[in-house]
Write a protein that binds this DNA or RNA. Structure first.
Lengths: 174, 174
DNA sequence: AATTCATATTTCACTGATGAAATAAAAGAT
DNA sequence: ATCTTTTATTTCATCAGTGAAATATGAATT
């Protein structure tokens, strides 16, 4: 039963008590942080759960989806590293796995022959088109009871939060 | 520079193109999912980063904070497992680590002697009171530009999402 | 009192991810 | 032509987390 709801209730009480001991605590913001962390982790779990039957992990799925979403179905390891937030070593591994399953191909770029061109195969496209639709119902259920306004607002606020996080991280490495 | 913002822009275009190929895709919901995942992961990173200097990982910190936030400063492994979303094996390890550092103690419960009573020590309380305040500025910065209304809305929407996720997971194991 | 259940720990093994440094190949700069 | 930089891969070593099953102890049930 209601695991997240439980944890959230407990967190609410906890932060309430802590902010009595430490009044400088920015309690509403701390609550939002914890909420984001809990819900984010739960969502991550849910995703990995849906991917397991297809023998994909999050990074592999993300990489494949990036390629699928490209007009020409292709990219380079470097670019994929950035968007999938992975180190180069890992991207090599991910590509290895996807190549082995025939979902992508690796080839040398024409213009710059240091670069490797990664391209989704027809089989890769079919694979995505087959695995994606069964996820839709659960995704829709997650946002059951959200009005269009709610969705718009959540989107706006998450983007604002993302922007602030980028600021934080750019100040860190000058 | 703006890593998250970059990834988000790319995700927006990507989902736009995918939903042209697969019209049944619930695009706004899929965008919200990806946003949650990206921002959640970034927040997680930020937290681990702040914890590193104190040689704590997320679970250890969370466990310590739960104890700190209790009126009597105590709990049991079983309860901590639930709220920290950890297996029993792991909780034993976490407790070991915190005991070794003198932040908590382990003792047998009076009422039920199968149970172990875990209690934060005065040193543990001092530790928390010392490590917490330096985090406040960064937490506040994350929500810079959020009106009270924004915060209230974000909180409300995250809780609603959490509730829906709980539903999803309870339907799964009947 | 014997059996079953609940709680926590220990042992063991494994998986998964990670990443630094060395290597290779090609482009760009001097 | 040589040196430097960019890009990707390989090698190697680890680390972190995880978790199932066996063990130990005490409570609850019969």
């Amino acid at each position: 039963m209601a695991h997240l709801t439980n944890c959230i209730a407990m967190m609410d009480e906890g932060i309430g008590r802590v902010s009595q001991i430490i009044p400088q605590l920015p309690a509403p913001e701390a609550r939002l942080c914890r909420l984001m962390l809990m819900v984010g982790a739960s969502l991550e779990e849910e995703l990995e759960f849906k991917l397991k039957p297809h023998k994909l992990n999050h990074s592999e799925f993300l990489t494949l989806m990036i390629l699928y979403s490209r007009p020409d179905g292709s990219s380079t390891p470097g670019e994929l590293c950035e968007f999938a937030t992975q180190g180069a070593t890992n991207m090599t591994r991910i590509a290895n796995a996807l190549v082995k399953r025939g979902l992508i191909t690796r080839g040398a770029s024409e213009e710059d022959r240091r670069r490797v061109l990664i391209r989704i195969t027809p089989a890769g496209k079919r694979f995505v088109q087959k695995m994606l639709p069964p996820m839709f119902p659960r995704v829709a259920t997650m946002f059951a009871g959200f009005s269009d306004n709610d969705k718009h607002n959540l989107s706006r606020l998450l983007r604002k939060l993302a922007h602030n996080l980028d600021q934080l991280n750019s100040d860190a490495q000058p």
